[in-house]
């Protein structure tokens, strides 16, 4: 290959006699950097710039975009649809992350006491829903949630409990989706936590036990602080994942707007109502909210990272 011609010192190598300014660079590196830059320019910089530009315009995809200054953002502040969608998103995100992370932590703790062969086998079972396409999960669960003759209501009846409307009720629909999403991602979260728990040195736990620390105390004082980075990683990826989740809200909607999240609202504005400028404004708001939530969470957890 021609690209192998360059002679580049490594990043860590000591300073060598300079030949020319150019020859210190790797041809392969420069070729890759160029390709990558072109790609990100077309697939990221241009679309992101367009999103910002579009949020100051009105556009229906057919006529020319009209500059409306900050009117889209003013509209957004007074738009009940936006605030409802935001509230729905936050409710879903917070509850999902809290429930899923608690269960995943319990699962990972339990698994960490077993021999590797059991760990892998059980993880495979808990991980099965993760690999299913979201559409399959939604088609399956919406059928199980059915009010008349659904499997979940049949289980409730056999336990002597009253049957529930589930997805047909504005009060329950969001939590039906939340439960399904917890089911989908439980195994995945516990893999990361299990890997972290398995790396907690036995010597520390042993020392704590010799000092008379109870199992609970060992967990809160040794294990939990040591797996903080894994927890933070899990929380941040879950924030990003839940805020952007789309399939369940589009394919398994509750009555009215009871399960309309920001992601679904953006989609509807852009591709159903064809109000692209306002849709872009909502999506920019979503970006700002997501960024703030992520940075806040990282900042909050960073304090406990130093050990």
């Amino acid at each position: 290959m021609a690209v192998t011609a360059g002679s580049s010192p490594t990043g860590a190598a000591p300073v060598r006699p300079q030949r020319s300014w150019f020859s210190q660079y790797s041809w392969l590196g420069m070729g890759f950097a160029f390709t990558l830059s072109v790609f990100y320019l077309v697939m990221f910089v241009v679309p992101f710039g367009t999103a910002i530009w579009l949020s100051f315009h009105n556009w229906d995809y057919i006529q020319r975009p009209v500059f409306v200054n900050t009117r889209n953002f003013a509209k957004l502040l007074g738009d009940a649809g936006f605030w409802d969608a935001l509230w729905t998103t936050i409710q879903f995100s917070v509850v999902e992350i809290f429930v899923a992370l608690s269960l995943a932590l319990l699962l990972a703790l339990a698994l960490s006491h077993l021999r590797p062969v059991y760990q892998y086998t059980l993880l495979a079972i808990y991980n099965l829903p993760v690999i299913m396409p979201g559409v399959v999960s939604v088609l399956l669960w919406s059928w199980l949630y059915r009010t008349n003759g659904g499997a979940f209501n049949a289980v409730l009846e056999s336990l002597g409990l009253p049957s529930q409307p589930f997805s047909n009720s504005p009060d329950q629909a969001l939590w039906c989706i939340t439960l399904m999403v917890v089911w989908i991602f439980l195994g995945n979260s516990s893999i990361v936590l299990l890997a972290a728990i398995n790396e907690v040195p036995d010597s520390l736990l042993e020392a704590a036990q010799l000092d008379g620390a109870s199992a609970w105390k060992r967990f809160t004082a040794v294990t939990l602080p040591l797996i903080q980075p894994a927890m933070a990683y899990q929380v941040v990826t879950s924030i990003i994942g839940t805020m952007q989740m789309f399939e369940p809200f589009q394919l398994m909607p509750g009555p009215g707007h009871s399960t309309r999240t920001l992601s679904l609202y953006t989609y509807q504005l852009g591709f159903e109502v064809l109000n692209l400028g306002y849709g872009a404004a909502v999506s920019i708001a979503m970006f700002v909210i997501l960024l703030s939530a992520t940075l806040f969470e990282l900042q909050r957890r960073r304090r406990s990272w130093d050990y």
């Binding site: 990221f44 241009v46 679309p47 992101f48 367009t50 999103a51 579009l54 990003i240 805020m243 952007q244 789309f246 920001l262 992601s263 953006t266 989609y267 852009g270 591709f271 692209l276 849709g279 872009a280 999506s283 920019i284 979503m286 970006f287 997501l290 960024l291 992520t294």
Partner: peptide, 10 residues
């Protein structure tokens, strides 16, 4: 850090 939904329309 930029959600896919922000890039979706453009």
């Amino acid at each position: 850090m930029v959600p896919f939904l922000t890039l979706l329309i453009p």
